[in-house]
Design a protein around this nucleic acid. Structure first.
Length: 472
DNA sequence: ATGTGC
């Protein structure tokens, strides 16, 4: 890797590579990135058919299935490909923030109570099932219409819809392209948190760095309480990914055989299998938005019980695991590309027509969760990001250790105790869930966000700190 | 990430 400037490294095009690989990282984070196979996977992205301009890795990058997590690649809509490994198993994993009219002191007084109420109403952990049971026909409506289903059922308002990326509904979604097995897994999981790094966190605004933008986003003052929800499409999205990986492998043996890394299986755009995958992926994305929306409904009701005057407004909901057909300026020309963001947040700059009108003049809110017990951030999209990263930023701290390593090194009890000594309460279904997500198992979120800010692909608006965490 | 893998 050649250091190009402060926070940017380039691996020049050579051999089978079609474009260079660009990595946004500080020296410190680059050392973390070099610890696993992530760079090798980044170079593999740059070898795929139809990739445009450059393959990108974010400062939080680490090894994933096929593509690295923290990888971004844009493929020519005609000559390119779509790859499930470039999106991830958790299709439309994403983050939303609810701003509140509550202050840190009043919430701290009843923190244990509100966490308990949330824990009762929102089911967590692996295989967790929500209170809702959907018939197949209703699940199909949810998959086809996204947030519109949630509005119809009373879980969402029109304002909620406006404040979701894509208005919470991928128009290409087609439930008939989702397998019965995936639907069976999804029927009981709408409104469930899941496991891993998924969480609902009650946070306080610690520092506002861009006052006027923060105000636009509904962050009025330091000490204001907000709620962050981080979850995805649960077993349904996972099954969609598995189904299409297998289908692409078996129905395209010549492509499969030719691959150095079999995890990079893809479908050429324009083929039936690529179309089917995009429709199924879009349906899973709709599930992700409905899942976070139903949890929002439960969160609002839970807060009403403990804080009767509370008013929780959706600031924004943004995804970090998805491929989308977008138009970007490449080599001076506007071009249609399928942008794969795998562990990278969609981050559009000022004026983009896909940003809600209320935020359009300043840019899109970018929501970046830290690991459990550390800070999270709100950033704003920039013109620089549109030019450099197809409108993308990092998505979080990024793992430093495998779950296995973390389990060996930490116990859930100790992690919970350490956090409690810092005034942070954790409510979880399993001790293992807590130890796997120990703050020490993750990279430094402050450093990740600093790179994003300094490079200019996303500018820091506000820093948030945890008060209480409900996790899987 | 995931009804974690044999």
């Amino acid at each position: 890797m050649k250091k190009e400037s402060e926070n940017t490294y380039v691996f020049e095009k050579k051999g089978d590579m079609k474009v260079p690989l660009k990595v946004f990282a500080s020296e410190k984070l680059m050392k973390d990135i070099e610890k696993d196979r992530a760079l090798e996977q980044g170079i593999n992205m740059a070898k795929l058919p139809g990739i445009c301009k450059h393959a990108i890795m974010m400062p939080d990058a680490h090894q994933g299935y096929g593509f690295p997590i923290g990888g971004v690649a844009a493929f020519d809509a005609e000559k390119g490909i779509i790859s499930p490994g470039g999106i991830g198993y958790d299709i439309n994993c994403g983050v939303r923030i609810l701003t509140s009219n509550l202050g840190v002191d009043e919430v701290r007084e009843k923190l244990e109570e509100i966490l308990n109420v949330l824990y009762e109403n929102i089911h967590t952990g692996i295989g967790s099932e929500s209170k809702i049971r959907l018939e197949t026909s209703e699940l199909e409506e949810l998959l086809d219409t996204g947030i519109d289903w949630a509005i119809k059922k009373g879980y969402a308002t029109e304002e909620d819809k406006e404040r979701c990326e894509e208005n919470g509904r991928m128009p290409q979604a087609d439930s008939s392209k989702v397998s019965d097995r995936a639907k069976k897994r999804g029927r009981k999981q709408v409104g469930s948190l899941g496991a891993g790094n998924h969480f609902i966190e009650i946070q306080a605004v610690e520092k506002i760095l861009d006052k006027s933008t923060a105000e636009k986003f509904g962050i009025k003052e330091e000490g204001q309480v907000v709620i962050m929800i981080h979850s995805g499409s649960r077993g349904l999205g996972h099954q969609v990914c598995t189904d299409y990986l297998r289908r692409m492998e078996t129905e395209q043996p010549e492509i499969f055989k030719s691959l150095e890394d079999k995890e990079l299986i893809y479908a050429p755009l324009g083929t039936e299998i690529a179309e089917d995958y995009y429709k199924a992926m879009s349906a899973a994305a709709n599930f992700g938005w409905c899942n976070r929306q139903v949890m929002t409904y439960e969160t609002r009701n839970s807060f009403k019980k403990v804080f009767p005057d509370s008013d929780l407004k959706l600031m924004y909901d943004v995804c970090h695991n998805m491929a989308k057909l977008e138009t970007h300026e490449i080599d001076g020309k506007m071009k249609k590309v399928y942008v794969h963001r795998k562990g990278a947040t969609r981050a559009f700059g000022p004026g983009h027509k896909e940003i809600p009108e209320i935020y359009r003049d300043v840019g899109q809110p970018i929501l970046i969760p830290g690991s459990m017990g550390t800070s999270s951030y709100v950033l704003v999209g920039t013109d620089e990001g549109m030019k450099e990263t197809f409108g993308s930023t990092p998505h979080g701290a990024g793992r430093l250790m495998s779950r296995h390593q973390a389990n060996k090194l930490y116990t859930g009890e100790q992690v919970q105790k350490d956090l409690k000594s810092k005034g942070i309460l954790v409510r979880s279904a399993s001790w293992r869930g807590v130890s796997e997500e120990a703050p020490g198992a993750y990279k430094d979120i402050d450093e990740v966000v600093k790179v994003s800010h300094e490079v200019g692909i996303g500018k820091i608006v506000a820093k948030l700190v945890p008060l209480g965490v409900l996790k899987g």
